[in-house]
Design a protein around this nucleic acid. Structure first.
Lengths: 205, 205
DNA sequence: TAGACCATGTAACATGTTACATGATTTG
DNA sequence: CAAATCATGTAACATGTTACATGGTCTA
């Protein structure tokens, strides 16, 4: 239920064509709500059908011609409604944590390299956010809109900081485990294995 | 591509029926890969069809009868393969950050209460994780599997810590903005509004 | 024996992903 | 004018969500 509202926000900030939106989703908005161009075109169609946006009049016809959209009053009202309505936090879904947990059962083979790769990616993302911060939020601006957007950016910075720190620690643990490491993996995929590998968390009642 | 692997991990830790899995997904595994019972039953069916798991023989017939599953060698091998294979981090999707950004354009009405509510929810989750940590990871255990699972738990703890801190700060900002607050919202949904509300991040290139 | 809950499922739909198609514009 | 790239889309599929259905077991 969020993609249309992400698009409405982006269009209110600046009327755009589908491709422009796609590019902006690769930069700013997409940092916390990503979308592919297929999703965006599909959603633009729906939003137009619902009367929330309209194509800017510029006598452009069919395929291959760019088409810009702007938000209509009904769209703005819908966005305001959605923003004000309470919403529960959505549950996390993180494959990397899942793989780590799986590795406690089937072995850590291959994982370390990918942790390193992720660490690098998160460091780059962090650097990118900090560059944006330097550029767009110099000390002393405090229009409410700037404060709100700065707050969002700080969430991104703090999240990436968390990941880099956590991955550092994870890698340190991997190194400490050293030889004692569970490198089993497919080695005994013959299934004669123990099923005693219960995870502690499940011990709860 | 992760749900089947989450289920394989859970079943390796302990063979279970669909409902038992559902409950465990509400507790431990589900903290970083949630799933409803419908998803779980659908996926159990597929995993069985693929020969990755099998129902434990216990002459239980049709509907309404519990059916336990265990992982077969092929399933364990598939899990090991998946765990070792590199995977890119998936992009974030966070409606709350989106709403905050939208509020820079359509007003902050209603948001503060929901931030408070989220703060409360994250504090509770944090307390729950710390309770699990006290119970299951007393100092001095260092079997590799425990270390790996502890690492995962710490990611949960650190993430919830991040959210509580960030929400604290966000609420402080809201209070500072005070009267100057953008409480507009539907107030001028007549659409005569400014479209000059460009977000700084978009100024790139 | 009626109602609550346990346990497994079906169906319909919404959202997200991947692969491909098509016309327009630019550039060598 | 051929090839690359821009811009908009279609189709098929995978995943996730919501609402409901069905039979079994327990308890007042």
């Amino acid at each position: 239920m969020s993609l249309p509202h992400a698009i409405l926000t982006a269009l209110l900030e600046k009327p755009s064509s589908g491709l422009e939106l796609t590019r902006r989703f690769d930069r700013s908005i997409g940092y916390f709500w990503s979308a592919t161009h297929q999703q965006i075109y599909r959603e633009l169609g729906r939003l137009e059908a619902e009367g929330h946006i309209r194509a800017l009049p510029a006598e452009q016809p069919a395929r291959g011609q760019r088409k810009s959209y702007e938000v209509l009053p009904a769209g703005r009202a819908e966005l305001a409604r959605w923003t004000a309505a309470p919403q529960d936090p959505r549950p996390h879904r993180d494959p990397l944590l899942l793989r780590l947990r799986a590795s406690a059962v089937v072995g850590t083979a291959g994982l370390r390299e990918d942790l390193l790769r992720h660490l690098d990616l998160h460091r780059r993302q962090l650097a990118e956010y900090e560059e944006i911060r330097r550029r767009d939020f110099p000390p002393g601006r405090d229009a409410p809109e700037d404060r709100l957007r700065h707050l969002v950016l700080r969430a991104g910075i703090d999240l990436e900081t968390f990941w880099t720190q956590w991955l550092d620690r994870a890698l340190a643990e991997f190194d400490e485990m050293g030889e004692a490491q569970v490198t089993d993996g497919a080695g005994r995929a013959d299934g004669a294995g123990d099923t005693s590998a219960r995870a502690p968390e499940d011990s709860a009642s």
